[in-house]
C-alpha cells in the first residue's frame, strides 16, 4: 500500500505492506535507526516515537496506521539550532548512560513536559513508566526532566 505521512516535518510517500511494524519501516526503509528495538512487545519503550504528538511503541503500530499522521522520531527532536532542552538536560544530568533507551525516553519526556507542564516528580515517573532504563536507576532522568520543566517554565515567564 502507499502511505502518505509527515516524518520530522517532511512529507514522505512510502510503498510498503500495512501489517509491518512501524519500527521496521523506520529503521529498514527510511534509515531512521535512532529508534531502537529492545523487546518487540511494547514493554521497554525504546522504540517510542511521537505520533500526532502522542508517544507510541513503534513495534506495536502496524505501519498502515500512520497514514496521514505526523511522526516525530529522535532524529527530528532537536531543531537545527542545537539540542532540544530535554536532550540538553539529559546529557548534563547524566540521564543518558548506555544510550539505548535514550531516544524513547527523550521523546516521551518531551511529550510529558508539554502535556503536564507542572507535573510533580511522582507524576512524571508515572508518565514515563513505559520506558525502561537499566543504567541510571531513573534518578538522573527524573532530575533532567524536572530541570527541563523548570527551564521551560522560566522561558514562558
Amino acid at each position: 500500500m502507499n502511505i502518505e505521512v509527515t516524518i520530522n516535518g517532511e512529507s514522505r510517500s512510502i510503498e510498503t505492506e500495512g501489517h509491518r511494524r512501524l519500527l521496521d519501516v523506520l529503521r529498514e526503509e527510511l534509515g531512521l535507526v535512532g529508534t531502537k528495538e529492545g523487546c518487540g512487545e511494547g514493554e521497554c519503550g525504546a522504540c517510542t516515537v511521537l505520533m500526532d504528538g502522542e508517544p507510541v511503541n513503534s513495534c506495536l503500530v502496524p505501519v498502515g496506521q500512520i497514514q496521514g499522521t505526523q511522526l516525530t522520531t529522535i532524529e527530528g527532536m532537536a531543531g537545527s539550532d542545537g539540542l532540544h532542552i530535554i536532550q540538553d538536560t539529559l546529557v548534563r544530568y547524566g540521564g543518558a548512560q548506555c544510550g539505548i533507551c535514550t531516544p524513547g525516553v527523550a521523546l516521551c519526556a518531551k511529550w510529558a513536559v508539554e502535556k503536564e507542564p507542572g507535573a510533580s516528580k511522582e507524576r512524571l515517573r508515572e508518565l514515563l513508566a513505559g520506558n525502561i532504563c537499566r543504567c541510571t536507576g531513573y534518578q538522573a532522568i527524573v532530575d533532567a526532566v524536572v530541570a527541563a520543566q523548570n527551564s521551560s517554565e522560566s522561558s514562558h515567564e
Partner: peptide, 16 residues
C-alpha cells in the same frame, strides 16, 4: 485491529 497493542506483540518475524 484497533490500537494494535495486543495484536502486534512479538510480530517481528511472524507470517503476515
Amino acid at each position: 485491529v484497533a490500537g494494535g497493542t495486543d495484536y502486534m506483540v512479538a510480530s517481528k518475524d511472524r507470517l503476515p
